[in-house]
Design a protein around this nucleic acid. Structure first.
Length: 388
DNA sequence: CCTCCACTGGAACCAAGGGCAG
DNA sequence: CTGCCCTTGGTTCCAGTGGAGG
């Protein structure tokens, strides 16, 4: 009796050679030896952080830029470099990377920092003040024998700020020997910060502009050398991926994804080379996977809302919020959520790009109406919804 | 510029998970 | 063990807003 996983691995191994050498460099989390086209930004980070080597708390830094513009990679790269330099200088530095989608409140971030620095703190139960005190004691009491410097990288900080306010920045910037590097997708995230924090944050800003098609090409070429065998990619593959990703706001992650999926398609079909036609199909596949992924991870009530939208769309009716709620309660029977909650769901779904809304006014005495439209393929949605 | 009601912001509430002092 | 206090993520409740057709 054979094991299906062993079979699959054997099967894959036997053929592995022909397209991919190593898929890892095509993952957006892969950190190459040098980051092309981000020299300026990395140098700026270094300029602000270098003080720490002289035992001085460095400036707070903020990185701005759309998704896939290399913010996270640049900060991780700078971290590696600084740690290396600090080892030579015999300075005690910790640089902790926190993704704010994983730790969404001030308490959680501080607790996580404590834990990583070796101070056990429960995830719940303590007061915020107790946790903050424990955190600050790490710096005061000489717990490590020498002075500890901490740089906290807060990735996707806008999420944390909009959920839990700016208390986290207040606490961190008012702790000795702590510097913050915040990473935000939005330029206007400063609106979420109150004046009491702005003054102490006093940060330096670094902009990450979207990559142009040419720059994306350079990135892909470098990664392709690491991950594909020689002469596997047709000449037009990388330019096409780059052009398509450049249109998607210069998103390098998307470009890498395209290339990887194109390679996988070529592999699955046992074709000799990766062609532009594979890239085109990779695009559909990515789109498809994304939507399925989003839908399957949606909370139950939101799925029901989607289901209601789907049913109404099929009927061909114009969908208004009121009608949607009727249909929704029909579907979920007793276990339904309030009218108010539905609006939040609708907004979230719109943010995810699955639906679109358009508010119109019907004039005096008729009030307003919100017209809701499905923005993704009906068939795709249906299979995704009912296959869970 | 009025009006109406679909939407929004915020407080309050709830249940679940957990620490700590008696 | 018990009671009390903490955070958190989800919800409900209610008092506003605001936008465009008239």
């Amino acid at each position: 009796m054979s094991n299906i996983f062993e079979d699959e691995r054997l099967f894959a191994n036997r053929r592995k050679n022909h397209i991919f050498k190593d898929k890892k460099p095509l993952d957006h989390r892969f950190l190459p030896d040098k980051l092309v086209h981000r020299d300026d930004q990395i140098r700026k980070i270094a300029k602000y952080w270098v003080d720490v080597l002289d035992d001085v708390t460095p400036s707070n830094v903020t990185l701005y830029g759309k998704t896939g513009t290399g913010k996270t990679a640049a900060s991780k790269f700078a971290r590696e470099q600084l740690i290396e330099a600090a080892n030579n200088e015999n300075i005690f530095i910790k640089i902790e990377y926190i993704r704010c989608t994983d730790y969404t409140t001030e308490y959680q971030v501080i607790a996580q920092l404590c834990n990583r620095l070796g101070r056990d703190v429960p995830n719940r139960g303590w007061t915020k003040a107790e946790v903050v005190k424990a955190f600050r004691d790490l710096f005061r009491t000489n717990a490590f024998g020498k002075k500890l410097h901490l740089i906290v990288i807060l990735d996707e900080i806008d999420i944390l700020l909009s959920k839990d306010g700016d208390g986290i920045l207040y606490t961190l910037t008012r702790t000795d020997n702590v510097a913050v590097l915040s990473i935000s997708n939005y330029l206007d995230f400063k609106n979420l910060i109150t004046p009491r924090v702005t003054s102490s944050l006093n940060d330096k800003e670094i902009i990450f502009p979207p990559y142009g098609a040419g720059q994306l090409s350079d990135i892909l070429t470098e990664r392709a050398m690491l991950s594909f065998h020689d002469d596997i990619l047709n000449d037009d593959v990388i330019p096409l991926c780059s052009a398509m990703a450049a249109k998607e706001e210069g998103d390098a992650r998307y470009a890498l994804d395209l290339l990887k999926n194109a390679g996988e398609l070529a592999f699955d079909e046992n074709s000799e080379k990766v062609t532009s036609e594979h890239v085109i199909r990779a695009k559909d596949r990515i789109e498809h996977n994304k939507i399925t992924e989003i839908i399957s991870t949606l909370p139950l009530q939101q799925q029901r809302v989607l289901e209601a939208i789907l049913l109404l769309t099929k009927k061909g009716d114009e969908i208004t919020s009121g009608k949607l709620y009727e249909e929704y309660t029909e579907i979920s029977k007793k276990d339904s959520v309030t009218y108010r909650r539905i609006f939040d769901f609708i907004n979230e779904l719109e943010l995810l790009g699955i639906i679109s809304t358009n508010t119109i006014s019907r004039g005096r005495g008729r009030g307003r109406t919100n017209i809701i439209k499905l923005q993704c393929d009906e068939q795709l949605l249906e299979t995704a919804l009912y296959s869970i």
